[in-house]
């Protein structure tokens, strides 16, 4: 018999691991990934593969050569960041831009803060917003869905979001008739018009992923549900007040809203810890998104809203404590 081990309790573990959680998120992204392949073909494959490979490479290289620490790529967090970054890019984006995005996401968004667990902002969004500001033309021309063989040569078109912006700018509600129906937007079956980024096309595929993560208890419902409800209510009120604002279902299923609500805002590291804090965070993101979309310069507000609220996360954590045992008023 070897030496006995002594340690403090507990002596058993749930068997959960960081890798396992990241893997579950990646699995949850699979339906959306498949759908983007169906919609954009080669372009989607190139963008996703480049993004994942570049993120993993940069994380490995930085831990290995700069931090001289044990590489942490096995925890799959870099792969997940890469996949999410890819989902936030148009399918005709040149490879070199994607690589720059990955470098910013991993290098600046994550590793400068000390790696997984220490970053303040969602790395994939840091990468995306960097690209959006640096390469506004490439980042805001989206190819039309259905060109399976095309990559950078794909024909581009107007996305639902740009249609909505145009309607508001012109004060003309009839422009909105160019939008696909709510059901088409939910399923991602656009017959015409640019579709947007890779992962934004099918809300349904993203919702399937959400269900998977809830089932696996990877995330809780608080953030996605609070975002979606806030957007629905706020956009609904605007729509009722003035029909130049699109109907709330179309708002929900357009652009990166579902992707952001389900996958980006729920990033463990940059979201609040207590459920109360998560609700506040979600409501604020929903509100900011609608404000930026309808009254701001950019057609899409999800990324900015999430990044803004990421900055507030430490503050929310400080003030929103979970309800302590015994605080409940006796019934």
């Amino acid at each position: 018999m070897g030496k006995l081990t002594i340690s403090l309790s507990p002596h058993v573990h749930s068997g959960d691991s960081v890798q396992n959680n990241m893997l579950n998120v990646i699995i949850a992204l699979v339906p959306a990934a498949l759908f983007s392949l169906y919609a954009f073909g080669v372009g989607a494959a190139v963008v996703m593969l480049t993004s994942v490979a570049a993120c993993v490479f940069f994380e490995w290289a930085i831990t290995r050569f700069i931090l001289k620490a044990e590489p942490t790529v096995c925890d799959l967090s870099a792969a997940l960041t890469g996949l999410l970054l890819g989902f936030n890019l148009p399918s005709n984006l040149p490879i070199w831009i994607i690589i720059i995005g990955a470098l910013v996401a991993i290098g600046i968004g994550k590793m400068t803060f000390g790696g997984l667990g220490c970053n303040i902002f969602n790395p994939a969004l840091v990468g995306r917003v960097f690209l959006l500001i640096s390469f506004p033309v490439q980042m805001t021309t989206w190819p039309e869905a259905g060109q399976l063989g095309a990559y950078t040569d794909a024909t581009t078109g107007a996305t639902p979001l740009s249609v909505m912006t145009t309607a508001i700018k012109n004060g003309d509600a009839s422009v909105l008739s160019q939008l696909p129906s709510s059901m088409d937007m939910l399923l991602g079956t656009y017959s015409q018009g640019g579709a947007g980024c890779l992962g934004e096309i099918s809300a349904l595929a993203l919702l399937i992923g959400f269900a998977w993560m809830l089932l696996k208890k990877t995330i809780t419902w608080h953030i996605p549900v609070s975002i979606i409800c806030t957007v629905f209510v706020f956009a609904g009120l605007l729509h009722v007040a003035n029909p130049v604002y699109a109907n709330p279902f179309q708002v929900l299923f357009s652009g990166g809203l579902m992707l952001g609500a389900i996958f980006m805002a729920t990033d463990y590291v940059s979201s609040p810890m207590s459920s109360k804090g998560q609700l506040i965070y979600g409501v604020a993101i929903g509100f900011l998104t609608v404000v930026i979309r309808n009254f701001g310069a950019y057609p899409e507000g999800m990324s900015f809203a999430i990044l803004i609220m990421n900055a507030f996360t430490p503050l929310i954590n400080n003030y929103c404590k979970p309800k302590r045992f015994g605080e409940v008023v006796k019934k």
């Binding site: 967090s77 997984l116 667990g117 809780t220 463990y268 810890m273 459920s275 605080e327």
Partner: peptide, 18 residues
């Protein structure tokens, strides 16, 4: 490994602590 701030400990704590 480092804390990923997943908040699972917060939801597991029966005393509502962090």
């Amino acid at each position: 490994s480092s804390c990923i701030r997943c908040a699972k400990c917060v939801s597991a704590c029966p005393m509502g602590l962090e």
